[in-house]
Simulated assay, not measured.
Amino acid sequence: MPPARPTLRTGIEEVDPRHALDVPRLEACLRAELEEFEGILDVRQFVGGQSNPTYLLSDGTRSWVLRRKPPGKLVSSAHATDREFRVLSALAGTDVPVPRVRFYCDDEAVIGTEFYVMDRVEGRILVDQTLPDWTPTERRALYDSQLDVLAALHRVDFQAVGLDDYGKPGNYFARQVHVWSKQYTASQAEPDERCASMERLMEWLPENIPADETTTIVHGDFGLNNLMLHPTEPRIAAALDWELSTLGHPFADVTYHLSARLFPTSPFQDFDEAGLRAAGLPTQDEYVAGYCARTGRDGISDLDWYLAFHLFRTAGIMFGIAGRAKAGTANSDQARSLGASAVPLADRALEFARALGA
């Protein structure tokens, strides 16, 4: 019997008591920072994310979105709301659709952690990337739009928009393997929690990195769940959740979606290539070709290494979520079920690595 697919909720609800805000202090801050703020502050919370708690703010007439670091003890490199704010500010005015950011607050006395506020972009967040109930024409249009946005991001001159020090050019994958190895290790409190597949990948991946040092801005989490869709049309209205963005290799973003198709619980597992084409969903080869056509590349060599890396990376993220769920700091009740996917993801990554000689 195949593993159950975790159900991710999206939407807006009352604020989780674990992430409650000091509303009067926040309202005073908003009045000082937003000239147009009037009325009485109402705060609700978006559900579905696993990282930085996100809130809908309203004064009865207008609305904004607040992103904050979660409360509690955190991994030092995680939940970088300041980096999100910086990259969103830099991308304003480029061909990459992003929300307009309004201000950043590093005064933890306001709501207990650092946060930033941005304009709300109206639209839809979709979790199932096979887009059930859509027509083949609509699916093709949305994936074309996704690739348009990704190609636009990778064409941005990061030096011209002031992000030349946003990351370290070169050695991106070596640094990424180190980061997620460190997170995995930190999440394993007991020796008997160690994962054999992760341990082997931590040795093999850095020794077999493809020799390509292309550097662009990378989003780091470029799935449909982090893209705001137009309310009615099959196109992207805004790219969200830039917490993992940095300067890095563009193939990391390209293969992010392709690796997600390989998850044991992915709905893409229900499709063969003929089924994908009939449904209007790009095959792996078509997705790569579409990206390369938009960016002037001939193709992506070493694709299997990049897929092994991404599955490893996602496993590292899930191990981190599992560790935070155990510690009581995870951002949703879905954290435990997501954390349970860590080992199968690591095992799948090792399958790709073994095909390459690991």
Rank of each mutant, 00 (worst) to 15 (best):
M1W: 15
P6N: 14
T7V: 09
E13H: 01
E13C: 14
E14Q: 08
V15I: 07
D16G: 12
P17N: 04
L30T: 04
L30Y: 01
L34D: 10
L34N: 12
L34S: 13
E36W: 01
E36S: 09
V43L: 12
R44V: 11
Q45K: 13
F46C: 13
F46S: 15
S51Y: 08
L56C: 07
W64M: 12
R68F: 06
P70C: 14
S76W: 11
T81Y: 01
D82M: 10
R83S: 04
R86S: 05
S89D: 02
S89M: 08
T94E: 01
T94L: 11
D95L: 06
P99Y: 02
R102F: 01
E108T: 10
A109H: 03
I111F: 14
V117P: 06
E122H: 15
D128V: 05
Q129Y: 11
D133I: 09
E138R: 10
L142C: 11
V149M: 06
A151N: 15
V156Q: 07
D157C: 11
F158H: 10
Q159Y: 10
V161R: 07
L163T: 09
Y166I: 13
G170P: 08
N171I: 07
Y172G: 11
A174H: 01
V177T: 06
W180G: 09
K182L: 09
T185E: 13
P191T: 14
P191R: 15
D192L: 11
D192T: 10
R194C: 12
C195N: 05
E199M: 04
E199L: 12
M202G: 04
W204Y: 15
L205G: 09
P206M: 13
P206C: 14
N208V: 04
D212Q: 06
T214M: 13
I217E: 00
V218P: 00
G220Y: 05
N225P: 09
L229G: 05
P231G: 07
L240D: 05
H249T: 03
D253H: 05
F268E: 01
D270M: 02
F271K: 01
D272G: 06
D272L: 13
A274K: 13
G275H: 04
L276I: 02
A278E: 02
A278H: 06
A279R: 09
T283K: 12
T283G: 13
Q284P: 03
Q284L: 03
Y287N: 02
A289C: 09
A293M: 13
R294C: 00
T295Y: 00
I300W: 09
D302T: 07
D302N: 03
D304I: 13
W305T: 00
W305E: 00
Y306A: 04
L307H: 00
F309P: 00
R313F: 04
M318C: 10
F319E: 10
I321G: 01
A322Q: 13
K326E: 02
G328V: 05
S332V: 14
S332E: 12
Q334I: 09
L338C: 12
L338Q: 08
G339E: 14
G339I: 08
V343M: 12
L345G: 08
D347G: 14
A349E: 08
L350K: 01
E351P: 03
F352C: 15
A353T: 05
A355M: 03
